[in-house]
């Protein structure tokens, strides 16, 4: 367990010190949200109605952007080989790295959503719920994404390929995230959607490390 925490701490320190990853993801997040009203027109009613969807989709894309780096830098400098031969199971290594991705990318993105919501004229009453769904849903984003990152480690068109592999798998997260937000906007069933979203996140936290570790093991041999 202490090894797990040490690895988590190391990955978080790296992401803070390097800084670039989070900055890029946040910048990308804001840019997508800026571009969409320019493309859709400035109708504030329309924007406030579709704002939760825009924010969720932009969050998925921004998180995706930083996924490629979850394993690749450690793979390049050989750290991953050391970790793989170490005493901690590779599943735990994957778990620590995905958790670090969630803390360093998922949480900041979710916390930025209200600021961007202001720009989209989103009703302020929705903010707590929107942030809650994002905080509950982003673990699934990070852990499912880790599987995609592990699978594409050795492919020569990494970034685009991750998007093709992982985005379809984000569909349930997106749908239930949106269902939970829309619950407050009128339709019932918020708590049900929220519970399912939490179940999705927990399931992916448990299952995805096995798939990702299997993919990494195949590539280390």
């Amino acid at each position: 367990m202490s090894a797990f925490l040490a690895l988590l701490k190391r990955d978080l320190m790296l992401s803070v010190r390097q800084g670039g990853a989070l900055g890029t993801a946040l910048g990308f997040y804001m840019l997508v949200v800026t571009l969409l009203p320019l493309g859709l027109g400035q109708d504030l009613n329309l924007l406030s109605r579709i704002a939760p969807g825009i924010l969720w989709i932009a969050l998925l894309l921004a998180a995706l952007l930083s996924l490629g780096r979850v394993f690749s830098s450690d793979h390049e400098d050989g750290t991953l080989d050391v970790l793989a031969t170490g005493r901690m199971p590779l599943e735990m290594v994957v778990g620590a790295k995905a958790l670090a991705h969630w803390i360093s990318t998922g949480i900041p993105l979710a916390l930025t959503a209200p600021v961007l919501g202001l720009m989209l004229n989103l009703d302020i009453a929705v903010y707590p719920l929107l942030m809650a769904t994002m905080l509950v849903g982003t673990p699934a984003v990070s852990f499912i994404g880790a599987v995609g990152a592990a699978l594409t480690l050795r492919s020569y068109r990494g970034g685009l390929l991750i998007a093709l592999l992982v985005l379809p798998l984000y569909v349930p997260t997106l749908i239930f995230g949106m269902a939970a937000v829309n619950g407050l906007l009128g339709v019932s069933g918020t708590s049900a959607a929220m519970l399912i979203l939490a179940a999705l996140s927990l399931t992916s936290v448990v299952l995805c490390p096995f798939a990702a570790a299997a993919a990494l093991r195949v590539q280390m041999q």
């Binding site: 594409t152 492919s155 020569y156 798939a211 299997a214 195949v218 590539q219």
Partner: peptide, 18 residues
């Protein structure tokens, strides 16, 4: 796409299976 993006064929097979 995953299979076609990895040169090592046996590796591509295993990853695609996963």
């Amino acid at each position: 796409a995953l299979r076609s993006s990895i040169e090592d064929e046996s590796l591509a097979s295993k990853l695609t299976a996963i």
